[in-house]
Amino acid sequence: MPLELEMATAEDAIGSSDRRLVDLVDGLLHHGVVIRGELWLTVADVDLVFLGIDLLLAAPHKMRASGAPQ
């Protein structure tokens, strides 16, 4: 069965109450130029702790293959 397709302009979507379009608009609100890659813990508008998070995630066999201790 062919894929059902609906078109909407940006204005339609912003003014819409269709839940799927609302989700789409809400998803968009966090895009665009935004300062990210940092996290602040804030109490009473005072920034207390800055987290610059760098994570290394890997599947176990990759780590073992590279000679890391098991």
Binding site: L3, E6, M7, T9
Partner: peptide, 14 residues
């Protein structure tokens, strides 16, 4: 129109 898919799927182009 050319894609064959399950009836519960739909595509929104905004």
């Amino acid at each position: 129109a050319a894609i064959d898919t399950s009836p519960n799927a739909s595509l929104f182009v905004t």
